[in-house]
Design a protein around this nucleic acid. Structure first.
Lengths: 153, 153
DNA sequence: ACATAATAGTTACATTTGAAACTAATTCAC
DNA sequence: GTGAATTAGTTTCAAATGTAACTATTATGT
């Protein structure tokens, strides 16, 4: 058993590598919709969630996109101000309100989705089809495992 | 050529998946050193860079850990206040200052590194050795490619 | 039925972060 | 050598974010 101190090689350290990869990808994507459409990252994610699963309550949105309720509330407020999202209070439970994209919101969503998918496609060109499937599977396993570790402490 | 609108499935969308994976890993790691040692993510990264490559200028640190100079400046200020980092102005170019961990900083660094490596090891248990090598290689390719795409626009 | 607790969502306050302006020192052009 | 442009790093101000407290409504226990 060696007692030599292990070195932390930041450039090979998985958490660090994941962080900078996610960061550069997120920034690249942000470039596509921030300028032209004036959306923040959180606003775009809310729109993406509503575009796919509406109607959703704010809590549902938060669960979908792993974002706390305050962040969702603020993003929704901004989207409502711009008329991109509509809210309707639930008749049976007036604490809840279901959210959906407005007509304008759907138009914007329909413009952004192809840009986002195109960027994803260009990114995936770094990998062959088989490599892509492999990466997706492995990253899923890492995610599930990271979540377990977090719960376990 | 299909003209059917493609759907954006957030849960399968690579940028989104990378984002939440990096986030949960980063938060888990943060739990290890934030409470016990009172460091922010950026402060810890600066310490990690200095622990491995010192002496470095603030700009060098920024390049190593992909962080802008304002963030580095603030992290270093905090670390200096706590006596964890030392600064020495360059004699030949007094704009520059070389940074290194202080004795206290080295002690703290030496305590955190094993915790970080242990977390990484536990995380990697989700994968076999071969899968790990595969994931590392593929994520490297994605990173390089993402950087190229970013430059290209 | 009534008090207590729980849930959905918002608001307020403090901290963090980012962009741009700024200071100081050095290099470059001529 | 002098003025303009660069570079290193800090400060300033505004925007974004997190935590905790808050409002309103519904559910629960007795």
């Amino acid at each position: 058993m060696s007692n030599a101190a292990q070195a932390l090689e930041l450039e090979n350290f998985l958490p660090y590598r994941l962080s900078i990869l996610a960061q550069i990808v997120s920034e690249s994507l942000h470039d596509l919709y921030a300028g032209p459409f004036g959306l923040t990252v959180t606003q775009w994610r809310v729109m993406a969630a509503l575009g796919r699963f509406a109607p959703l309550t704010a809590s549902d949105v938060g669960q979908r996109i792993v974002m706390d309720k305050v962040a969702v509330s603020r993003a929704v407020a901004g989207l409502m101000t711009r008329g991109l999202v509509e809210r309707a209070t639930d008749r049976n439970d007036r604490r809840r309100a279901s959210l959906r994209l407005s007509a304008r919101g759907r138009v914007m969503h329909a413009r952004i989705v192809p840009l986002a998918l195109d960027y994803e496609a260009r990114l995936y060109k770094a990998l062959s089809d088989e490599e892509r499937r492999s990466f997706d599977a492995l990253s899923d396993r890492l995610f599930s495992h990271a979540r377990q570790l977090r719960r376990a402490g």
